[in-house]
Write a protein that binds this DNA or RNA. Structure first.
Lengths: 232, 232
DNA sequence: CTGAAAGATTGACTTTCATCAATTGATTTT
DNA sequence: AAAATCAATTGATGAAAGTCAATCTTTCAG
């Protein structure tokens, strides 16, 4: 692993406070690999052999049941996934596939658990990370249960706008079919939902979104930090 | 606090491994109170001043947005709620109200955070607890996104049946209106959903459920441990 | 540059679900 | 026990969302 990557990973909140020796030990046991797009990295139900760190590219976490499937989240560099399964030594609850060419570090789960037992700074960092993940899912659950699909889309656009710097014009960073799945609707309905937001000044050209009237859209979307602010 | 309660709380996975001294210190700072039914214990958005332990009774965790609200979970003795907010020192994401007369221990959040910093066994127990909570919400998210309301009800009944000992006849432990909210539907639709399960041998009399044909119902519900098994 | 393939959109239709109103049933209060 | 209250159910209706098929658009390999 190149030194720059090593340092980038070390800077993650999860790893930044642990003893150098333990971090080095974790990294020594890690496999770093380049994967092409659309590769299934893990499959739900399998034992959690590896903890994953996305170094570049992006990864879709999804889940299936009875022939249906749904996107649960997207992991972008630099961050990690499947921490809870690793810690509990329990089966993966979600599958993961690369969305594009991606570079990923695979850390054997048993190493993570061993260092977790040995390094209490690492254990504490894991607490913070898990609490963050937990709260994110709760927010997403509230989004799903309390809002219509039109409201979810409106709020997603506002979040994405903020994430992209707050400009009036910005780009979606999802394929629309995946966005639909993340928002819990069909691609057809997403198309119609975009039209449904036209009265609030939203125009769409390909992946380019224009918020024509910020106030109108916000008045409709009623964003709420307890649902939409992913930083707390 | 009576000795028996003290010991019951101590036996929780969250507290069982920590140093006696630290547990005692936590309990010394705790307030134990009896609340009547329908009391709002905490309100979403407020700072997380107290970590809560339900000693008896039951508590509904719910959330509101734009005039709507939804039940997120029910907490039954002996267990805890609002751990993530306490640890992160972040606002509550959910409100909580007693469903019945309940006895609840309130532990100042700053005490929990202080002991978390001092006692690495406690920190480790928190990891396990949070990982469990996180995985539970993911399962619930999958339930919501991958299943129709009829399928959710069918699987809920199977889970509840198992929880009640596996007998053909068992009792719902929810008021139906709350069950509806937990399952993400209206009370009216829950009524119709029960009727929709009649062809699979389900009969309902008040809160008493009879599974007339286990195989039929399971064939329809297609329960899956990665969604329905809350123990892993 | 062209054609193939995949994604996105649109329209027509169906199913699912929420809402509203009325009624029934159960429980509590006086 | 009668009245009052609240939950549960039912029917009628409308809105929201899924499905299917056809068409349009974009992307990209050859």
């Amino acid at each position: 692993m190149p030194d720059s990557e090593y340092r980038d990973i070390r800077r993650l909140n999860l790893f930044s406070q642990m003893a150098e020796e333990n971090f080095t030990s974790l990294m020594r046991g890690a496999y770093v690999q380049n994967f092409p797009a659309q590769i299934e990295l893990i499959t739900e139900g399998e034992p959690s052999d590896f903890f994953h760190v996305v170094i570049s590219g992006s990864v879709d976490l999804f889940s299936s049941w009875n022939g249906r499937d749904t996107s649960m989240a997207t992991v972008r560099p630099i961050s990690t996934f499947i921490l809870a399964a690793t810690i509990k030594d329990a089966p993966y609850l979600m599958s993961a596939r690369t969305l594009e060419k991606s570079r990923i570090a695979l850390i054997p789960s048993q190493d993570v658990r061993a260092i977790f037992d040995a390094d209490s700074d690492f254990a504490r960092a894991i607490v913070t990370e898990l609490a963050q993940c937990y709260r994110s899912v709760i927010k997403s659950q509230k989004d799903l249960k309390l809002r219509t699909s039109l409201e979810r889309l409106a709020n997603y656009l506002l979040r994405q706008q903020r994430h992209a710097g707050g400009e009036t014009v910005f780009e979606l960073d999802f394929e629309k079919r995946r966005l639909a799945s993340v928002l819990g609707m069909t691609p057809e309905n997403l198309s119609r939902a975009f039209k449904g937001l036209q009265p609030y000044g939203v125009t769409v050209t390909g992946t380019r979104i224009t918020i024509g009237n910020q106030g109108d859209l916000e008045h409709f979307a009623k964003p709420n930090p307890l649902i939409d602010d992913f930083s707390t």
